[in-house]
């Protein structure tokens, strides 16, 4: 296999596999936040802002894999 092809496959794998975890995590956060909001609509604003922050934290592994994919593609 050529080096160029291996780089492209590696970057694709890094991004695709790395996006699984954040997807599951953000689903959990969003789902439980919806549940909490439905039970206690008065708290909805506070829960929403906390949910956004939690989602931003959960997607960080996806961002790391993106950076790894960028390093594979553009630096090596």
């Amino acid at each position: 296999m050529e080096v160029e092809a291996a780089k492209l496959i590696g970057a694709g794998l890094a991004m695709g596999l790395g996006a699984i975890g954040p997807g599951i995590g953000e689903g959990f956060v969003g789902g439980h936040a919806m549940e909490a909001m439905a039970r206690n609509p008065k708290m909805a604003d506070k829960i929403f802002t906390n949910m956004i922050v939690a989602i931003a934290l959960a997607e960080s592994t996806g961002i790391y894999s993106l950076v790894i994919a960028l390093i594979i593609l553009f630096v090596f």
């Binding site: 931003a56 960080s60 961002i63 790391y64 993106l66 950076v67």
Partner: peptide, 13 residues
């Protein structure tokens, strides 16, 4: 590294 990469990655992506 993690706190810096999170901001960079989001904006760049």
């Amino acid at each position: 590294v993690s706190v810096a990469t999170r901001l960079f990655g989001n904006l760049f992506a």
